[in-house]
Structures are given as C-alpha cells and as structure tokens.
Design a protein around this nucleic acid. Structure first.
Length: 576
RNA sequence: UGGGGCGUCGGCAAGCGGUAAGCCACUGGUUUUUGGCACCAGCAUACGUAGGUUCGAAUCCUACCGCCCCAGCCA
C-alpha cells in the first residue's frame, strides 16, 4: 500500500490512532473541511502575538495548535506580529518571541509578517468603507462615546456625526492621516448598529490618532488601525484558512464577518478555543509584567515563571512542553490544568535523557574509621540505568565523605531504612557502611559528624552473602567534592488559584515568599564538565546549570523538578 | 435584565443514537544498588437538573439551574 497517495481521505478520516496528536474539535473541523474541499485542500494558519510581553506556557498551547495543525495536515503557519499599538510594543519582545518559538521547535520559514506591513492596504480598505457609506469620522470624546454606547442591557444612541457625508468623511480621514488633528480628537468608526445586542457591533472604532513613532514604520503614520479591524483583514490578506484564537474573541467574530463581507475579501474561518490555565500560577500578561517590573521576580526568565524563557532557564525541555500541550487537549470549556501534569511530562522526558550524578545538598560529614586515611580509589557508576549507551564513569572514594543530613536519624522512625546508630546502608556504587557513633552539639542538637566502618567485601555495592540492604544513599568524597550552589523552586503562589482573592487582597498577597531557596554549601561529584545538559542528581531530581549564574569555578544549578518522593508521603502519614 | 459561550471521575479530556477511551492525581501491590523508573490492580451503573422522543440517549427535543466572556480611541 502506498501510504502517500492514500492519505487524503482515509487517513484523514481517522483523527487519531496514527501516533499523532489526540482528537479535538478543531481537528475534527479541519478534517471535515478537507472532506468537503472547503479551501481546495489547503490549510494555512498563523500565530499572531502582540510584541508587548514574553511568551508563556499558554502561548505554547496556541503555538502547538497553530503550527501543529498546519504541520499535521501538510499546510503552513505564518508568524505575524499584531503591532497596531506603538505605545505598548517594543522590538525587545519581537526578538524574544522569535527565539521562543524556534526553541519550541517550530519554524515559520520566510513567513515573518507584521500587521504594520499592511497599514497602506488597511488604509485603502478604510477609504473603501467610507466611500460605501460604511464608516464615518466621529468627534465624540472618549467619555461621550462611552455614554452613547449604552450598556449591556440598554441600546446605544447614534453619534451626532454618524450622518456626515461621504465627502466630508473622506476629507476628514485624509486630514487625520496628514496629522492635522490632535491625538484623541477624532476617530474613524464603522457604521453598523448602535442598538445591537453585541456591543462590538455598536459602531466600533477602526482608526485612532496616535502621535507616536512605531517600531517598524517610524513616523510614517499618526493614525493606527484597531486590533479588530486589523486582525481579520490581516488574516484575509495572508489567505489564512483556519484562524484559531481564544474564547473571548467569539463575540468579535460577527464584526470580523462584517468587515470581510463589506469589503468582499477572502474569508478565513475563525475557531475559538479555551485558554490554558494552570494551578499555582498566573497567565495574564499584565500581571506577569507587573511581577517583573516591580521586582517580585528576577526578570522575565525567572525560573519560577511559566514564561517560555523562565521554563527554559528552569531546565524544561521543548519536548516536555510539547508533550504537555498534546496531553491537555483543546476544547471550549474553561478549565484549570493541574501543574503536576506539566511536571510529569518533564520527568518522563528527562528520565530517559538526563545523565545521573551525585550531589549532597545539605552535607553531613562521615568518617569511615576503618578506611585508610591515605587511601583513595575509584568506583564505577552507570550514567543512566534507562540507557546503557550513556556509559559509565569513575567516582573517587576516600575515608571522609559527605552524605545528606536527612539520611541520618538519631532516632529513626518506623519504616526508615537509611542511616542510624548501628544501622547498615549501601553507598551507591561503593560500599556498605555501618554507623558506630555520632557527634552532636548538645546546645543546638545539631549532628556534627558520623563515624562508621565499611565492609571491604561490599565493593561496588553488593556482597557474596547477598544480605539484604534496604537503604541506598548518595554521597561524595570530601576531598574530591566540588562546591556548588543549588537553587530549589516551589510554586510562585500559595493557592491553587491565585485569582481567588479574599476581601481586600490582591494577587501579590498570595505570592509564595518561600518559592526560591538557594543552598550555597552543596557538594557535587567532580567532573560534571558537560554542565549544559540536564542532569539527575540521584534521589533529588532533575537539575540544569543556570544559564546566567553558573561559572565553571562556581557552579550554580537550578532544580527543574524534584523526583517523586514516596518516603515523604510515608513519613507524613506516620505523623498522624 | 441584552448578546455570546460552556457544563462527562479530584483535575484535564475522548465520545457525534447502540449501552462511559486515555492521561495526571490518588490508593494498593510486584520489582529495585535512586523510597526514582518500570510493571500490575483499583478509581464515573454514570455524563448539571427535570421531563420528552426512541427498542435503545452523554449523544436528539423542551424547560430549568450553574459557571465564563463582552460596555478600551488595548490586544
């Protein structure tokens, strides 16, 4: 069977099951459009960000959908910047947006467009509307316009300027462009219906005067088209077939249809879907910017932020994010996805790829009394038990090592099978040790150091008698260890829904002040040369060297996500 | 009280008239030189509610209830 010649109908009729993305209502529409040959077998989408902020995980959902659908059905996806408001936009954002999309693994090839590229065409369309008596220049102030607009339940009232002649409108609009009028003094409005139930249809503004220079068109224009007008026509100009957007634009669709129909131009199909929400975080661009600008976080790429640059710095992989976007699905119901699904996708990806290493975050000194002080040897350690091809490495061992403070208890609770007085444990890849005594600062209760003896017959971590050792600890040799800083992160907000506020609260009151912890006295195994790659610190989690702070002489690691911790659960249930 | 949407397991979400997929979370268990991973098992007699049509309804009809969005010269 030749799969390639057969894939128009049969395989398209099967939404899922080919190892491709799961079924969703948009995909079903597209399949149906192919079946009815709605656009001549063509699919063309676009991702249309406004360059006024950094992309976040919610945008990733849209990107995966826009680029993903095009890719899956053999079409194209444009990148188009919706840059119609020079007051809010900046080239800084354009660069970051392009970087993030590429990082996710999508490519718009040579189709990098800007709504501002269409300003001249858009102006001509406006002239056409005026000539057809479908648009007029209005001198109402913003306040007056609000009054005339009516309310949700009361119809609006016609503007006194609504009946200007075509000639007068043409003259005024041309003079608006020429810069004759003050900013905000006049607008061009569509002449639709001030009594419409849909407020978007009550003679919406389509052009306003803004005397600001634009990041691409400079000072060429002092009138700028509004988003509603620009967006649908830009889609039309680019011959977009499926214009995917979020739910709040659903009641703008009749307005888009109106513009398109009045002008008699190509008519894309808009389909709306629900935005992504995640527990313990915020997605609003406005609030994200506030967190950045007021210094609650360390820039747009703060590892606690779910911006794509933040996730990247945190150690998230594009693969994990795309897998996540596949699994959350696409629908019209507002919903909040559990952040643990995102974390799961990262663990799943990194488990296969990250090399293993040992790091002690809170070191406790252990002296192995029967191991010669002048001796050192190397033990072999596998780099990834999930992938033999990743090989092994040699780890130095000596009589003084560090283990995790939490791996020793003076009075071990039930089911605790780590180190305690008289207990034997395995040092991963090395030897069995038994705790003989411990030194304690009686005033603070702090354990100073442990004294143990090792079993020389247990080299490599096993013995001939095959005795059962339940606990396996990670460790580093004191004299070989490298000092490092390790940063741990937690949710940025204390409540699953940071928008769920009590009387007098703002979302800032819900910021988790414990969301970032820097451990500065960590000990990591030597030879972690390839610090660009994600690493699993055994029994801790997945980490990545911080792209900004880490130096070869002073490594800084970010914890991307902790490992599942069954013991923590057991211990918690023991408390009750 | 106008207009536009949405309601399927704790959280996402398939399903499109033939008798409730999957994933996350959670709970047991097996395995284990990571209390990780993997594996096995459990987890909606039920689809907002109430009626109706039908041999048969989450899917069709009617009414009701609940939630979300819209009154920027923002996008």
């Amino acid at each position: 069977m030749n799969k390639n010649t057969d894939n128009t109908r049969e395989s398209l009729a099967k939404p899922s099951g080919n190892g491709e993305s799961p079924s969703n209502f948009i995909k079903n529409i597209i399949i149906d459009d192919f079946r009815t040959n709605k656009y001549g077998g063509r699919i063309h989408t676009r991702f249309p960000p406004e360059p006024n902020g950094y992309l976040h995980i919610g945008h990733a959902k849209a990107i995966c959908l826009d680029f993903g659908m095009a890719e899956e059905f053999g079409g194209k996806c444009n990148l188009r910047f919706d840059d119609t408001n020079p007051m809010k936009e900046d080239v800084e954002y354009i660069e970051s947006i392009k970087e993030d999309i590429h990082w996710l693994g999508f490519d718009w090839e040579d189709r990098e467009y800007y709504a501002s590229d269409y300003f001249e065409q858009l102006y001509d369309y406006a002239i056409q509307l005026i000539k057809d008596g479908k648009a007029y220049v209005c001198d109402l102030t913003p306040d007056q316009m609000r009054e005339y607009r009516g309310t949700l339940t009361q119809p609006g009232i016609d503007s006194p300027f609504r009946s200007r002649t075509v000639e007068e409108n043409l003259d005024l609009f041309e003079r608006m462009r020429a810069g004759e009028f003050e900013e905000g003094s006049r607008v061009l409005r569509a002449k639709i219906d001030m009594r419409a139930g849909n407020i978007n249809m009550r003679d919406p503004v389509i052009y306003r005067i803004i005397k600001a220079s634009h990041h691409r068109t400079g000072d060429k224009w002092c009138i700028y088209p509004m988003y509603d007008y620009t967006h649908c026509l830009s889609d039309s100009i680019e011959r977009i077939t499926h214009s995917l957007c979020s739910l709040e634009f659903e009641d703008h669709r009749p307005l888009y249809d109106w513009f398109l129909d009045q002008l008699g131009v190509f008519h894309p199909q808009q389909i709306e879907f629900a935005r992504l929400n995640l527990t313990y975080t915020l997605m609003s661009k406005r609030k994200l910017r506030l967190l950045v600008e007021e210094g609650y976080v360390d820039g747009w790429d703060d590892p606690r932020l779910l911006t794509l640059s933040g996730l990247r710095r945190r150690g998230y992989t594009p693969e994990a994010i795309r897998e996540f976007c596949d699994r959350i699905g696409v629908a019209k119901a507002n919903s909040v996805v559990d952040i643990s699904l995102l974390e799961h996708c990262l663990r799943e990806d990194l488990n296969k790829r990250a090399s293993r290493a040992m790091a002690v975050l809170n070191p406790l000194k252990v002296v192995i009394d029967n191991y010669p002080a002048d001796k050192e040897e190397h033990v072999e350690a596998v780099n990834n038990p999930e992938d033999e091809s990743m090989g092994t490495r040699m780890l130095p061992f000596s009589n003084i090592i560090y283990i995790e403070r939490d791996d020793f208890r003076e009075d071990p609770p039930r089911k605790y099978f780590r180190l305690a007085p008289g207990r034997e444990v395995r040092l991963k890849h090395a030897y069995y040790i038994t705790c003989d005594k411990f030194l304690k600062d009686e005033s603070t209760g702090e354990i100073i150091e442990l004294h143990c003896h090792y079993d020389p017959e247990s080299r490599g971590g096993w013995t001939k008698d095959a005795r059962k050792i339940q606990g396996t600890l990670h460790w580093v040799s004191a004299k070989h260890a490298v000092d490092a800083e390790i940063r741990l992160f937690d949710h940025l907000f204390t409540k699953p829904d940071p928008n769920d506020l009590e009387e007098g609260q703002t979302f800032k009151d819900l910021i988790n002040t414990q969301s970032s912890t820097a451990l500065k006295k960590c000990k990591i195994e030597p030879g972690l040369v390839d610090m660009i790659q994600p690493v699993q610190f055994l029994r801790h989690g997945y980490f990545i060297a911080d792209a900004k702070l880490s130096k070869p002489e002073k490594p800084v690691f970010n914890r991307s996500v902790p490992l599942r911790d069954t013991w923590a659960k057991i211990e918690k249930s023991l408390d009750k």
